[in-house]
C-alpha cells in the first residue's frame, strides 16, 4: 500500500477520532465549568416535569415553530439532519453486527436507504451553500460556514459515489474497519486493487478533517442544542 493511503486510512483516522473525542469532552467541560447566570432566560408559557422534557426534545429534534416562518428551510434542515442520523447509524454497521434480524434487514435495504439519504444530504448541503450566497445570509456568514459546507460536500459526494456506483461488497469495508479497531489498519485487497480506492481514501481524508475541525466549530451545536433548548423552556 502506498504511504499516503496508509497514513490517511490508518494513523490519521486514530488521530482525528482522538481529537474529536477529546475535543468534544473539552468543549462540554468548558461549558459546564463556566457558572450559569442565575437569571432564567426561559420564555412563557412554561411547562413542568415530563411535559417540559417532551417540549425540549420536540424543540431540539423537530423545531416545528420554524416551519411557521420558513417552511423550505425547515424541511431541508429536518431532512438533512435525519438523513445524517440515518447515515451515521448505517456507518455503525462497520463496527459490528446489529442484533438479530436487524442486521439482515439493514443489509437488504442499505443500498436504497443509504443511497436515498446520501442524495438528501447532497441536496441539503448544496441548498445550505447556495442560501449563503444570498443576502442576508451572505453577510451573516463567516469563512467557517463555507469551509464546513465544503468539507461536508466533499465527504458526501465521495460517499455517495461509493454507495451508488462503487460496487464494493460491504464486507470489504467492514474488514477495513475491524482492522482499525484491532490497531492493524490496512486496506483489504478488494479495495486496494479497485479503482474506487482513491475515492475511498479521499472520503476518509475529508472525514478526518471534519472530525478534527468539528470540536472547534459551530458544529458543536450537536452537543449543545439540548442544553440551549432547555434554557428556553427553563
Amino acid at each position: 500500500m502506498d504511504a499516503l493511503s496508509y497514513l490517511i486510512t490508518g494513523p490519521m483516522v486514530y488521530l482525528s477520532v482522538g481529537v474529536l473525542v477529546f475535543g468534544m469532552i473539552y468543549r462540554i467541560f468548558r461549558w459546564l465549568s463556566v457558572p450559569a447566570s442565575p437569571i432564567r432566560l426561559g420564555i412563557f408559557p412554561k411547562t413542568q416535569g415530563v411535559s417540559r422534557t417532551a417540549t425540549v426534545v420536540r424543540d431540539t429534534f423537530l423545531f416545528p415553530q420554524v416551519a411557521e416562518v420558513n417552511r423550505r428551510m425547515w424541511l431541508m434542515t429536518v431532512l438533512f439532519h435525519f438523513a445524517l442520523l440515518g447515515v451515521f447509524v448505517g456507518h455503525l454497521r462497520l463496527l459490528g453486527r446489529f442484533p438479530g434480524i436487524l442486521e439482515a434487514k439493514m443489509s437488504e435495504s442499505a443500498h436504497l436507504a443509504g443511497g436515498t439519504m446520501g442524495v438528501i444530504l447532497l441536496i441539503g448541503t448544496l441548498y445550505f451553500l447556495f442560501r449563503r450566497f444570498k443576502s442576508p445570509q451572505k453577510e451573516l456568514s463567516l469563512p467557517e460556514d463555507y469551509f464546513l459546507l465544503f468539507l461536508l460536500f466533499a465527504i458526501i459526494l465521495l460517499g455517495d459515489h461509493l454507495r451508488l456506483f462503487g460496487h464494493i461488497p460491504f464486507e470489504v469495508y467492514r474488514e477495513y474497519a475491524y482492522g482499525l479497531l484491532s490497531f492493524r489498519p490496512a486496506l483489504p485487497p478488494a479495495l486496494m486493487d479497485s479503482p474506487q480506492k482513491i475515492v475511498f481514501v479521499w472520503h476518509v481524508f475529508f472525514a478526518n478533517l471534519l472530525f478534527v475541525y468539528l470540536p472547534f466549530s459551530k458544529l458543536v451545536h450537536f452537543a449543545g442544542a439540548v442544553a440551549t433548548n432547555g434554557i428556553r423552556r427553563g
Binding site: R27, R30, W31, L32, V34, P35, A36, S37, L41, V66, V69, N70, M73, T77, R131, P136, Q137, L140, S141, L142, D145, K218, V220, H221, G224, A225, A227, T228, I231
Partner: peptide
C-alpha cells in the same frame, strides 16, 4: 462577564438566519 448561557450562545449559533423571519 462570561456565563454559561452566553458561552453556549456564542458557540452554537449556526448563523442559519432563521431568526430574521421571526
Amino acid at each position: 462577564k462570561m456565563n454559561r448561557q452566553l458561552l453556549y450562545y456564542l458557540d452554537i449559533c449556526a448563523r442559519c438566519g432563521i431568526c430574521k423571519d421571526a
